[in-house]
């Protein structure tokens, strides 16, 4: 009996080895381990054996069955792995084909610049304030220390919509509005982005509509050296930590002392090149200490309060930052232009 079992094992293992697929393998299982298979038969005939032989043969029969089953399992695993490999290889795709891309749009470069500048100043404790684009000349000029006969108030240079209202020529009137609303109580820390209008013919460097950002910092004990500090921080943040500023005396009716702020040229690093007209510096904004008349007219005591104000051209910042050479690009909205600003 024992020999018969041993024989069956070898026979079955050989059949497993020679099976070609899962189906043949299954047949081998049925043939040897099935209910009608030879091992079952052996077990069924155990009743005829003696009490001594019975456990020995039973153990051997189980061993043989397990060994055959193990062979089948291993062969089964082999077939499954082969099948999986075949399936995976059949499913291979060209991963270099383009994906189902989600096509995002883009911010307008002027908006991008405004937001970048807003974020820096918000970080410095400023609030963002806006004002109307059609403005009283009281706020646009008078409260900014530009009296009635001032050359800048010429009808020829502004778009008036009535005798005393006009499309604002600067964002400065927001200074006056904000100061008056603060009723003589500081601190006032604001920046005011917005559209402004002047009667210029549109060309590569002029636009009858453009954008400015005005800023104002009024409190007790504000010094001109603070203006320098704030702009040193701003310029490093906006243009890069390797940039430096230079203040030059200038003139604005609403500041005294006044300063033009230059940034060292990013192209040549300050050595002088075509971009900076060999000077090594690029003018970026106008600033100064708020004129005492402006404080006084707008309800602040100039003996107690002082402050600085500044104004910058958004187009100029965008042109400097992105090397744009024609201001009209900002207003024709050519998508070949706009789509370049996706990542800014």
């Amino acid at each position: 009996m024992i020999d018969r079992l041993e024989e069956l094992k070898l026979e079955a293992q050989s059949a497993v080895t020679s099976s070609q697929d899962k189906k043949e393998l299954e047949q081998v299982r049925i043939n040897y381990l099935g209910k009608k298979g030879p091992i079952t038969e052996v077990l069924r005939g155990m009743g005829k054996l003696s009490a001594e032989e019975r456990p020995v043969v039973g153990q051997k029969a189980n061993e043989v069955r397990e060994a055959i089953q193990a062979s089948i399992d291993s062969k089964q695993a082999f077939f499954e792995e082969a099948e999986l490999q075949e399936k995976l290889s059949a499913e291979k795709i060209d991963v270099t084909l383009p994906g189902k891309k989600v096509e995002a749009g883009s911010p307008h470069p002027l908006t991008a610049v405004v937001e970048q500048i807003e974020d820096i100043f918000v970080g410095l404790g400023f609030e963002v304030t806006e004002g109307p684009e059609v403005e009283l000349d009281y706020y646009n000029f008078e409260m900014m220390n530009l009296p009635a006969d001032h050359p800048a108030r010429d009808m020829q240079d502004s778009f008036y919509v009535s005798e005393d209202t006009l499309l604002r020529t600067q964002t400065s009137p927001v200074q006056a509005r904000t100061l008056q609303a603060a009723k003589g109580e500081g601190p006032v820390r604001i920046i005011c982005p917005g559209k402004v209008y002047r009667r210029d013919e549109d060309d590569a460097t002029h636009s009858h509509q453009f954008m400015q950002i005005e800023g104002l910092y009024v409190d007790k004990h504000v010094r001109m050296s603070d203006l320098k500090g704030v702009f040193d921080t701003f310029v490093k943040e906006y243009f890069g930590s390797d940039r430096a500023i230079r203040l030059r005396p200038s003139y604005f009716p609403f500041t005294e002392p006044s300063a033009e702020i230059d940034v060292n040229c990013g192209v040549c690093g300050g050595d002088g090149c075509r971009v900076c007209k060999q000077s090594g510096w690029i003018e970026v904004l106008g600033s100064g200490m708020v004129h005492p008349r402006v404080l006084e007219m707008n309800g602040f005591d100039p003996d107690v309060y002082s402050g600085f104000a500044f104004g910058m051209g958004v187009e100029r910042f965008a042109m400097l930052k992105y090397g744009i050479d024609d201001i009209r690009h900002f207003y024709t909205n050519d998508t070949r232009f706009l789509s370049q600003f996706k990542h800014v």
């Binding site: 400023f126 609030e127 409190d219 320098k228 704030v230 230079r246 030059r248």
Partner: peptide, 20 residues
């Protein structure tokens, strides 16, 4: 000389800047 004016930071009381 404007460039000889020192660089300082305002000493006002701090407050959070914000967007409305």
């Amino acid at each position: 000389g404007y460039d000889r004016i020192p660089t300082t930071y305002p000493v006002s009381e701090r407050s959070a800047g914000r967007l409305s």
